[in-house]
């Protein structure tokens, strides 16, 4: 009975997770490269030109997966935050802070590519569309999380404060999304709608899926590399780091 419990928490210890993460990094890095190459090939070479949007639509192969990932990573952060607060595991907090920069990067990438796409399609770099606005707010939430963790010197307190903020944020994200959506529909008629996309060709969908998987693998790779750095920083004085990790 107790062995199963021990197995659950075995890799919750930074000392045992550090080598495991090191072994996983090359695999996920390779997966990132393969999936991204395949996704870009399908997206840029195989997928047909869109009848209405021309070649410019191809930015969705980066834009849509980046938006998905930015939202998904925040949820994963909240998951680790909840785990860290309830089980008091150190690694959970490290995972939360390891994920945040990648999430912020994807949120920024999604805004940037969205605006590059919006200029030729809508004729404006920025419109106050509900999705754009809530994506921007998500980006602010990431920045707030990173800033809070950076401002607190004690790493354990930084982890816990960050975890509370991530959980408060994840409760608020849907509220913010729906309030912004309502705000937008009140202010102006639906001048621009991204939901009524024309039915997609199969190859387009395949391209988006491949790129989403590539971003997924990239996120895992970066989070593992970053969490290894955080582990080393925090455990610098411990015996196992001196013995194993410093060669």
């Amino acid at each position: 009975m107790s062995t199963s419990l021990i197995n659950w928490f075995k890799f919750a210890s930074p000392a045992s997770f550090y080598p495991l993460a090191g072994r996983m990094v090359p695999w996920f890095a390779a997966a990132t490269l393969l999936l991204a190459a395949a996704g870009l090939w399908v997206g840029l070479a195989v997928a047909p030109t869109d009848a209405q949007q021309g070649e410019g639509y191809r930015i969705i192969f980066v834009h849509v997966p980046a938006s998905w990932m930015s939202m998904f990573i925040y949820c994963v952060m909240a998951f680790w935050a909840a785990l860290g607060l309830s089980f008091n595991t150190r690694l959970s907090g490290m995972m939360t802070s390891a994920l945040a920069p990648t999430g912020a990067l994807f949120a920024f990438l999604s805004l940037w590519t969205g605006s590059l796409w919006g200029k030729p399609m809508w004729g404006a770099w920025w419109v106050w569309d509900a999705r754009l606005t809530s994506q921007l707010i998500l980006f602010f939430l990431y920045l707030g999380f990173i800033a809070l963790q950076a401002a607190i010197d004690d790493p354990r307190r930084a982890d816990k404060a960050g975890a509370i903020l991530a959980l408060v944020g994840v409760v608020n994200v849907p509220i913010i999304y729906f309030s912004v959506q309502w705000w937008n529909t009140l202010h102006q008629g639906a001048s621009v709608s991204m939901t009524k996309a024309p039915s997609m060709a199969h190859t387009m969908l395949l391209g988006i899926r491949l790129m989403a998987l590539a971003f997924w693998a990239y996120t895992i790779t970066m989070a593992l590399i970053r969490v290894r750095c955080i582990i080393l920083e925090r455990e610098l004085t411990s015996e196992w780091v001196k013995k194993n990790a410093m060669e």
């Binding site: 010197d153 903020l165 408060v168 509220i175 309030s179």
Partner: peptide, 27 residues
């Protein structure tokens, strides 16, 4: 509470809180 006793807590507080005020502002 989150920024209590933290470096530059004033600016940090606005960065954390203002995005969460959006629903109240909108309604």
């Amino acid at each position: 509470a989150l920024t209590l006793g933290v470096r530059g807590s004033g600016v940090l507080l606005s960065l954390l809180i203002l995005p969460l005020y959006i629903p109240a502002l909108i309604f």
